[in-house]
Amino acid sequence: MDNKHFMVAGVIIALVIGVVAVFFASSDPDGLESTALIVQGDKTLTGATPPDVEVDTGLHETIVYDSPFPDYSIGGSLGTYGGLVAIVFGTFLAFVAVYAIAKVIAGARTPNQ
């Protein structure tokens, strides 16, 4: 498999994983959120997470930053499709950003070699 096919296959696998995740990912909190719920008294260590609890992130004064696509969705009424667009966009962006930066760094050293 040459480099081009490797990259195409790799990005397709990543996109498939991301798309499947939009439909099948668990909505249970992650380990850090679960721990936060225990600390704030909304969950026990091994118990199920109540459906309507939320992690209180206002523990310390901080700078409030509103991301354009919070929680991997583009918001509005698009629901699941918004999630799909967000994941596909993010996956491509991660690929392109790392590819471009790596290429620039590799290119910068070539003339000196």
């Binding site: 990259m7 996109l15 994983i17 991301g18 499947v20 991660a94 392109v96 950003a97 790596a102």
Partner: peptide, 15 residues
């Protein structure tokens, strides 16, 4: 490196 970045991003969304 680029494929790993895309795959890690996608896999991190799969809880």
């Amino acid at each position: 490196i680029a494929v790993l970045a895309a795959a890690i991003f996608a896999l991190q969304s799969f809880n």
